[in-house]
Structures are given as C-alpha cells and as structure tokens.
Nucleic acid binder design. Structure first.
Lengths: 205, 205
DNA sequence: GTCTATATCGTGATAGAC
DNA sequence: GTCTATCACGATATAGAC
C-alpha cells in the first residue's frame, strides 16, 4: 500500500520521519535520501534544498498539530465539554504522534529556522473559542483567565508528558510499557484537574 | 570580574551558553571557540573532543536542574508547603534559566547522546519526598496519585511554559514583555490548581 | 599553553551522462 | 527522472612550531 508512492512522495514521507525525530540540524540530506531509498540528487531535484524540504515538513507538522485542536473547538459542544474533548483529542493524537510537540517547540526556537507562518494559529482563533471563553467569564460560568494562560494550561499538560518520555523513564526507572500506562492515567488526571480549576462551581467526579 | 577566568573556564562557560541555546548538533566546535575568544585547538586541548565537552556541560545542567528541586524537598516544611515551594522555586529558577528544560528534554531524546547518569535523579529520591507522599495518601491528607504522574504534573506546569515561549508568542501574537507577565501570573495559577487538585479537602483561596 | 597549518572526513548542492 | 561523480566548504581533530 505504501510501496507504490511516487518518488517525490517517498522522499517527503522519509523526510517527515527523519526531521521530526532528529530535527533539522540533527540529520543530513543523505540520511533522508537513504531512508527513502533514493539518493541526494533526487532530493534536491524535487525539493531544491534541505531547507525547502524542511519548510514543507514543518508546515505539515504545524497543520496536523493545530488541526487536532481546531476540530474540537469547531464542534458545537458546550464549553466545558470542549475543554474535556480537546484534552482527550490531544492525548489520542499524541499517542500516535508523540514526537510532534518536541519537534515544533524546538524548531520554533531555532533562530535560523521558521520565520513562522502565523496563519496556522489563526485557525484556532477563528473557531471563536476565545470569544466563547470570554462570554463564559462574564456569565460566571468559568473562572476568569487570560487566554495565553489557558493555552499554557492545556498545552503544558497535554504536550509535555509526551515530550519528556525519556526524562521520565530515567527519573522513575520505568519501562516504555509502564510509562504508557502512566500516560493513559494522566489523561484522566489532567481532565479532572483542569475542569475543576476552570469550572470551580461544578462538583466534579 | 568575568575577565580573568582561566582559558579552560572561559571555554567551558562559552560552551555552556552555546550548547544550551543551540543543542549539541546545532553548533560547532568552532562556534564555541569563537564565543570564548579562543580557537579550536584549545578547545580540544582542554576537553579532548566536542562530545567530551558536551558531557561536562550536560551533566552540569542536569545538576542545576535537579538541585533546584532537591533543595526544596530536603527542607522540613510540611508536604503541601513543599509542593507550593517547589513550584515557586522552579519558576524563579527558570526565569533566569529559561532554556534549560528544553535543552535537557531534547538532548535526552537524542539517540547518540546522553546514556544518562541516573545518579542525578537519585538525589530526588533520596530526599524522601516520595515516601512522604505515600504516607500522606495513607493518612488521607493527599489525593492518591502515582509518583510518575505527580512528577509529570509538576514538571509539565513548570517547565513547558518556559520551553514554549516562541510558540506562545506566535500563537497569541504577544511581545516578550507581555509573555513574561503571563508567566508571572501563571505561577500563581499553577500553584492554586495543583494544590487544589492534590489536597482536595482544604479550602484553597 | 597557545598558536598556525593541515589531515581527514561529511556536508549541501550540482553537473552531466543516461 | 534517475543516476554517478564531483565540487566547494565546513566540520572535528591533531601535529608541530613557538
């Protein structure tokens, strides 16, 4: 099923894998070529340069990353439910893409890299989620909080656990399996903690 | 005051700065040499190789990182107060070392790098903080939670906000100054949220 | 200890045959 | 489109003069 991709697609798929797991400066064009079963000349033939290929991959990663949240925010569920669902969606999404948050956070911190196309983030704004929160403050249905802080709360508790897998394994001397069990449990912890904090009037549990 | 360091110290200081901000594969020996005002030959004269120098820097970073927590856990404050204090200490520490968590998390994910000396983490264990928590569960003074999940809660909410500075600035289109204000506010949010979650019987305000 | 010069290799990118 | 061969450069590391 994956065998009859075009050369261009094969290279792009390999680049995605290699870039995401090793970062821009952690890998070479040759490595990507080898991973795709092609050679360096072809990589540059289709994508002009390592940087150009990277931009494509990075933008794709940003899109996936943002969409996993936008899908939930665009739904017509009530606000509290949206928060629950976005955490669930993030944990589900990151279970299959655990390297994505580290990739995005790191590459955004490279000076050379990623004069970022902020259009991606506008998609979040355009779901109206922030307005919805503001309205909820005013009606006393939700704790008043700055939107940057809300974003931080959600992303910290969803993304960091996947970014710190190796650190956690070392600190607690646990296996991959044990860690994955902890992550599954963590989802519920995070949901309860955040919902209780953000919607304090409700009796949660 | 910093002018009359020995050559060795000057190189190590420059290496620390460069490695922490760009990562092992994001910089060259030449860059470190230049940043220290020395040349490549001297770097290798004192430290044998880029990798050896990196190990020194990484271990130093790990030590700083762990100590910022150990200091609090070793105190004789009551448990709830320790949790409060460790969050405060982390935010204070990271305000002056914002790049440290990303550095550690990233370099721990490099395959080549960091067959990590887990001794560092034993220092946390040896403070008895985990035993203290277990005792608190049994006496019903604290919510029962796996230690890996507790570590995740604290680290997620302390480290991620500093790791994601560039991402946050892009998402919310804010300046460094505004972001720093958000981080200061975030410390209090995190303290209240975590304490309320972990010690639910108390009335936290 | 400190420097210049150099050896050796890997990198990104391209030229040119097919 | 795809390949081999190659270029120009920067990387790590060291030799050897001072």
């Amino acid at each position: 099923m994956k065998k009859d991709l075009s050369t261009e697609e094969k290279i792009k798929a390999a680049a995605k894998e290699v870039f995401i797991s090793k970062g821009f400066s952690g890998c070479s064009t040759r490595e990507i070529a080898k991973a795709s079963g092609m050679n360096v000349a072809l990589v540059n033939y289709y994508f002009r340069s390592k940087s150009e290929l990277f931009k494509l991959v990075f933008h794709g990663a940003m899109e996936d990353f943002v969409n996993s949240m936008v899908n939930v925010f665009s739904s017509d569920a009530p606000l509290e439910q949206k928060i629950r669902l976005v955490i669930e969606a993030e944990y589900d999404f990151l279970s299959t893409h655990p390297e994505l948050p580290a990739f995005i956070v790191n590459e955004m911190s490279r000076e050379e890299g990623c004069q970022i196309d902020t259009t991606f983030f506008d998609k979040i704004l355009s779901t109206g989620i922030f307005d919805e929160c503001t309205k909820a403050f005013e009606e006393g249905r939700m704790r008043k909080i700055d939107m940057a802080n809300l974003t931080l709360l959600i992303m910290s508790n969803c993304d960091f656990p996947f970014m710190s897998k190796n650190l956690m394994k070392a600190v607690h001397k646990i296996s991959d399996e044990e860690l994955n069990e902890r992550l599954i449990a963590h989802k519920e912890i995070v949901i309860e903690m955040l919902i209780t904090y953000l919607f304090p009037q409700k009796t949660n549990k």
